[in-house]
């Protein structure tokens, strides 16, 4: 009737790879209105957002510091999503890793770093796995919706952290609700002097590499993708869908746990309630933006790290709220999701 019709057809490859770029452009156009309402010049704002953080070594390294937990939570979410397991619980699994790190950081006092730091990583990973286990089992055994269970467990662990910090772990020295400082031997070494960039960044990069290797080069990865993309057909072909999903869910939790270890051992040196400003949730944005591919997740994490850093620069320089960074992130996710759907259609003259 309108002279056009919409039909299902996949977009060509070149257009698919342009999607992140298009998404960023559309997001900036959409959020420009808000910047103007906040009384700033959008172009100048975006210069502070995107370019200023990279103009000095100190702030460029700070972008990588911000990216470290995001690389891990992004990898965590991507790993689960690739197998069709919608883990919304990376936030909580991060906290599980952080609790383990704060505890190990105390009891490993006196143990040399070469032993203590690997133990911190293993312990944090295991804690993430443990926290991911109940919803994963419920999903596989009883088909309980993991979106609900993983999401709700995020609140549960926040209360556990709060109980620990206001109870047995309250710092006896300061009296603040924070755990005692971890032993020096368990602190992650700095990669570059006079910056906050720590060993966790290397761990994050290795994790991204492992994500790539597992998904594209191993039988487990192929089974995960098969289970995620076509559960019935995967089952028909003999894939043990339940075990595959369980594995993906637990490894995903472990990776998120590593992010918690990094924040405790590399940045804060003790457990605090606000150790994550929502890294786990941002991981969902990153995994989606990155199209669940390792390289995409890596780039998306660093990009979001850039926006996070830029949001503070822009707010200092132009007096717009820091929340603008969050708005940009959220808009970016919505636009990207929209583009992922739209790429499956084309408009034709009827």
């Amino acid at each position: 009737m309108l002279g056009f019709k919409i039909e299902r057809a996949a977009a060509p490859i070149w257009m698919r790879s342009l999607i992140p770029v298009i998404a960023i452009l559309v997001t900036f156009i959409l959020t420009a209105t808000l910047v103007i309402m906040a009384g700033a010049n959008p172009l100048e704002a975006y210069r502070y957002f995107l370019i200023a953080p990279l103009s000095s070594q100190v702030s460029a390294l700070e972008v990588l510091v911000k990216s470290t937990p995001l690389l891990l939570t992004g990898a965590s979410v991507a790993f689960a999503f690739a197998a069709g397991y919608w883990n919304i619980g990376s936030e909580g699994q991060l906290y599980a890793g952080a609790i383990a790190a704060a505890w190990l950081g105390i009891i490993l006092e006196g143990v040399p770093s070469v032993v203590a730091i690997p133990l911190m990583l293993v312990g944090g990973f295991a804690a993430g796995v443990l926290w991911a286990l109940p919803p994963a089992l419920l999903k596989v055994k009883l088909a309980v919706d993991e979106v609900v269970t993983t999401l709700l467990l995020n609140s549960v662990i926040l209360f556990i952290v709060s109980a620990l910090l206001n109870g047995p772990w309250r710092d006896p020295v300061s009296g603040w609700p924070q755990s005692p400082e971890i032993a020096a031997s368990t602190v992650f070494p700095r990669l570059i002097p006079r910056s906050r960039l720590h060993l966790g960044f290397i761990v994050a990069l290795l994790t991204i590499a492992a994500l790539w290797f597992i998904l594209s080069r191993t039988a487990l990865g192929l089974k995960m993708r098969a289970a995620g993309l076509g559960q019935e057909a995967a089952r028909f072909a003999g894939v043990n869908v339940e075990n595959t999903i369980l594995t993906a869910a637990l490894v995903s939790g472990g990776i998120a746990g590593l992010a918690g270890v990094g924040e405790v051992a590399g940045i804060h040196f003790h457990l605090i309630e606000a150790i994550s400003p929502g890294y786990g949730y941002t991981g969902i944005i990153i995994a989606t933006l990155g199209g669940l591919h390792a390289v995409g997740v890596g780039l998306a994490a660093i990009f979001i790290g850039l926006i996070d850093t830029g949001a503070q620069t822009v707010s200092r320089a132009l007096g717009v709220p820091v929340y603008l960074g969050d708005v940009v992130q959220a808009t970016l996710l919505l636009v990207t999701l929209g583009l992922f759907i739209l790429q499956n259609y084309r408009i034709k003259r009827a």
């Binding site: 191993t218 192929l222 089974k223 098969a226 993309l229 019935e232 003999g238 894939v239």
Partner: peptide, 30 residues
């Protein structure tokens, strides 16, 4: 569509049923 997974490649779909035969040293033999 119960038999093949549309988003996977033809080669991956053909191998999926006998995946164990295509693993060498822990990795897929592409």
């Amino acid at each position: 569509h119960e038999g093949v997974i549309g988003e996977l490649s033809v080669a991956e779909n053909l191998a999926l049923e006998y995946l164990d035969e295509f693993v060498k040293g822990g990795r897929l033999d592409h």
